[in-house]
């Protein structure tokens, strides 16, 4: 138990330090961009008096260190500031989009994991056979394709040719019922197709590795049926290294949806990040960057804890 607490505590401490580092880099990066926040907020015809008043109101005349401390403190308390463009609370702007991006990423992951496991386990048992070669080749090719290519291909098939799904996903926020669900499908399928090859290859390699272990041979010699051998003995053990891969992939997904959201006009965090960077809406960019960083840290932490929970050897250290 002490080992678990020690391991978990060290990972948590590392996560906090990482987050602090992310916040510093984010603050520095967004404070050296060549844009005057007051000018962005008030427009190019703002008078010097207006700009001065704005800077004073927003505390932009304070030293950078003091501004950083205030900013981090506010962010931790949930006060994410106000968009310089829309004058909306950043919380109101970013909150719903985080939800939609998370749903998209989680749905894609939930679809991709079982598919990848099935394919990985199947091919691992048929190494070198035509079916293994075919699936491995296809996964390799798909893995090499950029996300937007997959997205455009799906748009062409399902939206343009068959017309059964919407070409863009604005319905995720502006639609309701079926139209809202439909808005998620093409981006979700795209992400799934992008995820499956990588996880499949990891599962395949891991299953193959575990299958050669003595305890598997021993179980086989004991007469354990093939299906039971695979799903009760091999797959659970082969899953351990894959858990880390999945967690890292999930973290990457949070950031990676930027491209997919742009392709499909999906109203998520990535689309808002792109538009906010373009319009130099610094408070929004800062918070989204922090949220994405937080996503990486949290999923990494969860992966570490999951491995700890699944691996008795780690627990006993």
């Amino acid at each position: 138990m002490a080992g678990i607490i020690k391991f978990g505590g060290s990972r948590l401490a590392f996560a906090v330090i990482t987050l602090m580092a992310i916040s510093v880099v984010t603050f520095l990066a967004t404070n050296v961009v060549p844009a005057d926040p007051a000018r962005v907020a008030l427009g190019k015809f703002a008078t010097p008096a207006q700009i001065e008043a704005y800077n004073e109101q927003q505390g932009l005349e304070e030293p950078a260190v003091k501004r950083y401390v205030i900013w981090v403190g506010d962010a931790i308390r949930g006060d994410w500031g106000t968009s310089v463009l829309s004058k909306q609370q950043v919380t109101d702007m970013v909150g719903p989009r985080i939800g939609r991006s998370l749903i998209l990423a989680l749905a894609a992951m939930l679809l991709a994991i079982p598919i990848a496991f099935l394919l990985g386990v199947y091919t691992a048992q048929r190494i070198g056979r035509p079916s293994d070669l075919a699936i491995s080749t296809v996964t390799l090719v798909v893995n090499s394709l950029p996300e937007f290519v997959v997205g455009i291909a799906l748009i062409f098939v399902f939206a343009v040719q068959f017309g059964i799904l919407p070409i863009e996903s604005s319905g995720a926020s502006m639609g309701s019922g079926i139209s809202q669900i439909k808005a998620y499908l093409l981006p979700m399928f795209t992400l799934t197709i992008v995820l499956v090859p990588y996880i499949t290859r990891m599962v395949r390699a891991s299953v193959r590795d575990i299958s050669s272990q003595p305890f598997v041979r021993s179980a086989a010699l004991r007469g354990v049926p093939h299906r039971g051998l695979v799903w009760r003995h091999v797959v659970p053990n082969a899953s351990l290294p894959v858990v880390n891969v999945i967690a890292l992939t999930m973290a990457e997904l949070i950031a990676g949806v930027v491209i997919i959201e742009t392709v499909f006009s999906f109203p998520g965090i990535g689309q808002l990040l792109v538009s906010s960077v373009g319009s130099k809406d610094i408070p929004v960019v800062q918070i989204i960057t922090l949220v994405i960083g937080l996503g990486f840290v949290v999923f990494n932490l969860l992966a570490d804890l999951a491995v700890l929970a699944l691996n008795p050897r780690l627990r006993s250290r």
């Binding site: 343009v160 070409i167 006009s265 689309q271």
Partner: peptide, 20 residues
């Protein structure tokens, strides 16, 4: 009238052609 943001021009055109 429902307005939906579709930043990409090609996507907007295709959405129009598709009846979306």
């Amino acid at each position: 009238v429902v307005g939906v943001g579709i930043p990409d021009a090609a996507t907007r055109v295709q959405a129009l052609l598709n009846g979306d």
